[in-house]
Structure formats: structure tokens, C-alpha cells
Computed example of a mutant assay.
Amino acid sequence: MSRVLSAATIVAGLLCFVGPAPAQDAKMKFELYKGKDEQFRWRLKAANGAILATAGQGYKAAADARHGIELVQKAGTNDKEKFEVYEDEKKEHRWRLKAVNGQVVATSSEGYKAKADAEKVIAAIKAGASKAGVVEVKE
């Protein structure tokens, strides 16, 4: 069962990553799972359970999904992948991470009313995803 939280809850949960004193036990984690369509997918969760990012697509092989996770983990230190903030059809701010070939590697799990909130999520992912573990879960 996926857990959907409001943008305010997500941003509040991220303050431990971008605020002055990060909490010692606040950790992100990647969940790798096989969807109903039999494709492998992943999601990045904050310590409070909020979904921060999802795969830009489904993958036939788990190894390919893991490669997508590795790209997100390196996004804070690798200038090859680029985060983009954009406005969707509902006039909400979203972000996506694109690989050097233009393929979308990761997307925001929801829209944010303020562009600054989307940017805070990006900053938190850059700061915390490299340390996030990967767990396999059943859907």
C-alpha cells in the first residue's frame, strides 16, 4: 500500500536534510518492487514515509531499475544528470531528473504550489540519496 502525503508534510519531513542540524536517524531509502504490470520500479522515500521520487519508467530487468537508482544516488555529485523544475497543467511545480541522453530517470511524486518547495526536495535528494539504502519490497 503506497502512502501519499501532502506537499507540506513532505517538505516538513525534509527539513531534517536541508535545515541547520540534520537528525541522526533521518534516512531516505529506495524501495525496489515489481509492479502489477510485471515491470520493476523504484521509489525514494523520506524518513517519514513520504514518497519523494519515482522511476521515470518501468524496467523489464531489476538490474536496469537498480541502474536508475544509482543515477539518482549520484545526482548530488554528478553534473551529467540535470534536475529540471517545471510547471504542470495544474499550475503546480514539479521536478524531473534527466540523464545526459535526455531520458527521464526520476520524477517528483507530486506537484508543489511553491517552486521553492520543489527546489527543497531536490536539495534534500542531492544531500541524502547517496546514503540511501535499497530494499526490495512486495507490492
Score class of each variant (00 low, 15 high):
residue 30 F to N: 01
residue 44 L to S: 07
residue 57 Q to H: 10
residue 10 I to H: 04
residue 31 E to L: 10
residue 1 M to N: 11
residue 37 D to C: 03
residue 17 F to A: 12
residue 118 A to C: 01
residue 94 R to M: 12
residue 9 T to C: 07
residue 19 G to D: 09
residue 106 A to I: 06
residue 139 E to C: 02
residue 24 Q to P: 04
residue 40 F to M: 06
residue 115 K to D: 12
residue 130 S to Y: 02
residue 19 G to A: 04
residue 68 G to C: 09
residue 59 Y to T: 03
residue 53 A to P: 01
residue 73 Q to W: 00
residue 139 E to I: 05
residue 93 H to K: 00
residue 115 K to W: 09
residue 97 L to W: 07
residue 73 Q to A: 14
residue 92 E to V: 01
residue 76 G to H: 00
residue 82 K to Q: 12
residue 87 E to F: 04
residue 115 K to M: 11
residue 41 R to H: 14
residue 84 E to M: 09
residue 53 A to Y: 01
residue 107 T to V: 15
residue 139 E to Y: 06
residue 57 Q to Y: 12
residue 41 R to E: 04
residue 35 G to W: 07
residue 32 L to R: 13
residue 18 V to I: 15
residue 14 L to R: 03
residue 43 R to T: 08
residue 66 R to N: 14
residue 107 T to L: 13
residue 46 A to V: 08
residue 38 E to I: 08
residue 87 E to S: 05
residue 6 S to I: 00
residue 122 I to R: 01
residue 44 L to E: 07
residue 95 W to I: 11
residue 9 T to S: 07
residue 22 P to T: 02
residue 70 E to T: 15
residue 87 E to R: 12
residue 36 K to H: 14
residue 135 V to H: 12
residue 97 L to M: 08
residue 106 A to M: 00
residue 129 A to R: 08
residue 1 M to K: 09
